[in-house]
Design a protein around this nucleic acid. Structure first.
Lengths: 207, 207
DNA sequence: CGGCAGATTCACCGAATGGTGAATTGCCGG
DNA sequence: CCGGCAATTCACCATTCGGTGAATCTGCCG
């Protein structure tokens, strides 16, 4: 066999196919599924039914493609503001888990974060990226709700860490029954627990 | 330069060095640090100051070495029994987080689980492995405490997922301040929240 | 209709990886 | 002191990966 699906003739294809977009979509999927190192240029090219060199033609290097794939697909600002929105009648626990499920429920929104998460498992650099992402984009907004209380940062991070764990157990490891349970059921279970990080009593002073 | 630290002469080394053990230790470290795919035979060999072929000589294939590296180093049965131990005066939340910190605090105990976690991020097979590990080794024991209540499995998994998230945020992403806070402080914060999964009110019947 | 620019593929490269087989060296039992 | 076995290394292989440079084909602008 040749090296790609669309093999044979070289040159421009008929019509006006959004090849660049297809590559980007394939890249998002592959990066999300396998992480930075796990995904390969060739694999992405194959998924996009395109010659590997074309991927380089459009995006230059793998790293640039990765960065391009991490862009756009959801607006983290809106998201984190929804979490911090104090006008809502919901507790911050429920707002957090609802927002979380909203983002992770959509495969398109899930892919880039999954990619960052998977990559952070192996690259110190990616871990740093994820750390900054959490700190600036997520925590930065959540923190305003916690800022007036002692150990605010710690509590906020504990809350976020639970969400991170949920993401992994539910979407990566796919542990049953938690992977298949409905959103509402999960919210009912988790929201009050998360909420406790916000209005729970101060820890019985350690030491 | 040659291809390894201990280069130059071939043949058996003097004395009775536990080379096999050193390779295994190096493998545990590398697998723990980089996951299954991230770690390389050559890297492990380099870390053990040994020729790559020697690694194959002792363990055959990379997969066998991985399995060998995952063995032994902690006794999960004892651990999970400690969690489930109903004679303790501690709540199950505190027992869980204490046991968790006990395992993860020790780099030797941490390495294999970290390796499984990192690998599960990319290999469906590893994810299955981790799923079984959690199900059989951890959840199996914790579940006895939950078995009499509705949604017992779900609650237990929610609890475990928080611990997974803590592991990642604290030991992989190293988010501050949660990465540096003392064990006792973390216990004081997290234990009561976890406990709520056990004795918290039933969720307002879904549907 | 001519030609340029862009889209697409082909044919490579150098490096790294998992793995193999044979050679060399040292230890230990007879 | 000798012979065999285990420990250790060397020299390779096939594969894959990211990346490059040139060739080819086609749509579109003048």
């Amino acid at each position: 066999m040749g090296r790609t699906q669309a093999r044979g003739r070289s040159g421009r294809r008929r019509g006006a196919p959004d090849t660049r977009g297809e590559i980007l979509a394939a890249a998002r999927a592959e990066f999300g599924e396998r992480g930075y190192d796990g995904a390969t240029m060739r694999g992405i090219a194959r998924a996009a039914a395109v010659d590997p060199a074309l991927v380089h033609h459009y995006f230059g290097t793998k790293e640039k493609l990765f960065l391009a794939a991490m862009e756009i697909p959801f607006d983290p600002v809106i998201i984190s503001e929804r979490i911090a929105d104090t006008t809502s009648t919901m507790g911050i626990g429920e707002r957090a888990i609802r927002t979380f499920l909203g983002v992770w429920g959509d495969p398109v929104g899930r892919a880039p974060i999954l990619a960052m998460l998977r990559s952070a498992m192996r690259h110190e650099a990616a871990a740093t990226l994820l750390r900054q992402f959490i700190t600036r984009v997520v925590l930065g907004r959540v923190l305003v709700a916690f800022e007036s209380m002692p150990d605010g940062a710690l509590r906020a991070e504990a809350m976020v860490s639970h969400l991170v764990g949920l993401a992994i157990v539910r979407y990566v490891v796919k542990l049953e029954p938690i992977a298949s349970v409905s959103d509402e059921e999960l919210i009912a279970l988790v929201a009050p627990v998360l909420q406790r990080y916000f209005d729970g009593g101060l820890p019985p002073s350690p030491g």
